[in-house]
Computed example of a mutant assay.
Amino acid sequence: MVIPVHDVNPVRRTPWVTYALITANVLVFLFTPGLAGSVAGDSSLSQLCHLHAFLDHYAAVPRELIHDQLPRFVPTGEVALSPQGAAGCVVGPAGYDKSPPLSVFTAMFLHGGWLHLLGNMLFLLIFGNNVEDRMGHVRYTLFYFACGYAASYGFALLNSESADPLIGASGAIAGVLGAYLVLYPKARVWVLVPFLIFLPLRLPAWLVLGSWFVLQAVYSSGEGVSDAGTVAYAAHIVGFLAGMLIAWPLRPGTPPPPEPRGLLFGRKARPRHTW
């Protein structure tokens, strides 16, 4: 898996929406109950119970999205001891009203750890600015959340009985990647390729994003990964395809990215002459 670090595709306007989304995701992560211990590497049972209660309230749950039925008992965030002396999280009637459709929106700002958060924000920062530049601030905002909703409901349809919480901005960001592939397939992207060391290369966007999509498809089948059940790869696929479809009408009027200069695939690119 290559790690993108920068694209050679300047923008005409400041991507305020992309910056705002990144800021909101980071702030929500920092103030998510129960994650402070995981950041420090010392998660107590109390912190985990508070985290489970928080996610049950604000995360999207496939079974709730499809059947619109909330569970009778949910984690309360409290810790209790059994008669045998074992500690565990307390469950009880929910003390709040939860809207499953609204939980899709709130779940887009929740992340399970630093790697989850930083990986998503890196992709959003690199590819979101150009998509926002092409669509405009308002349309880009609507596009981002539309892809997130499509990804969440698409995953829920495929896993309608699952009670596992669905969190993260990955589905919406996958839509951004799909739109970027449609709008700027020839743009060059600097990536780090792990080969003994991290080897920097400048590759076309169609290769970087196309290979990312293929990997998501492979992983969604359970091949090549041991945590296929904990990562919603199917949501990535649905979000990516939704982004491609929505961005396709904008493709004819999209100006091409600038012709790159310097190193290309690890060698010097030949100068081109115009007549």
Rank of each mutant, 00 (worst) to 15 (best):
G95A: 07
G37K: 09
M108Q: 15
E64M: 08
V74Y: 07
L45P: 11
P75C: 03
A40R: 15
P62F: 04
L115G: 07
R63V: 08
H57A: 10
A86N: 12
H52R: 15
F73G: 05
L21A: 05
M108D: 13
L27D: 00
S103E: 03
P93V: 08
V79L: 11
G113A: 12
S44Q: 12
I66Q: 10
S38D: 14
L55K: 05
A107D: 03
L27E: 02
N25D: 06
L35I: 11
T23R: 11
T23Q: 09
A20Y: 03
T18W: 08
L70A: 14
P62D: 06
R72I: 08
A53T: 00
F73A: 10
A94N: 07
F105M: 13
Q69P: 05
L110E: 09
S46G: 09
T18R: 02
E64W: 07
H116V: 05
T18K: 05
H111F: 14
D68M: 13
M108K: 12
A107E: 00
G95L: 06
L81W: 14
L110H: 04
F105R: 06
P33A: 01
G112W: 15
H111G: 08
Q47M: 08
Y96W: 13
F31N: 01
V91A: 08
F105N: 11
P62N: 07
D56R: 02
E78A: 14
R72A: 14
V39Q: 00
L70V: 10
L21E: 00
K98S: 11
T32Y: 01
D97Q: 13
V90P: 04
V61Y: 11
D68H: 09
P33Y: 00
G34E: 01
G92V: 06
N25V: 01
D56H: 08
S43V: 08
A53D: 07
C89W: 10
A59I: 02
C89A: 10
H116L: 04
D56A: 00
G77E: 07
A86P: 02
H57E: 12
N25F: 04
C49Y: 00
Q84K: 10
F54K: 04
F31M: 01
Y96R: 06
I22D: 14
P100L: 13
L102S: 14
F73S: 08
K98P: 09
V104K: 07
L102W: 15
L102M: 14
V61H: 14
S99R: 09
Y58G: 02
A24Q: 09
G37E: 06
H50L: 00
G85T: 10
S99A: 06
H116I: 05
L27N: 03
G88D: 12
M108I: 09
V74M: 07
L45G: 11
P83F: 05
D56G: 01
A60S: 13
V61E: 05
G88K: 14
V26A: 08
S43C: 06
L81V: 13
L30R: 02
T18S: 11
F73C: 07
P62K: 10
S46D: 14
V39P: 07
P33L: 00
F105Y: 15
K98H: 14
T76I: 13
A86M: 12
F54M: 04
I22R: 10
P62R: 12
L115D: 12
P100Q: 07
V90N: 03
G113Q: 11
P100W: 07
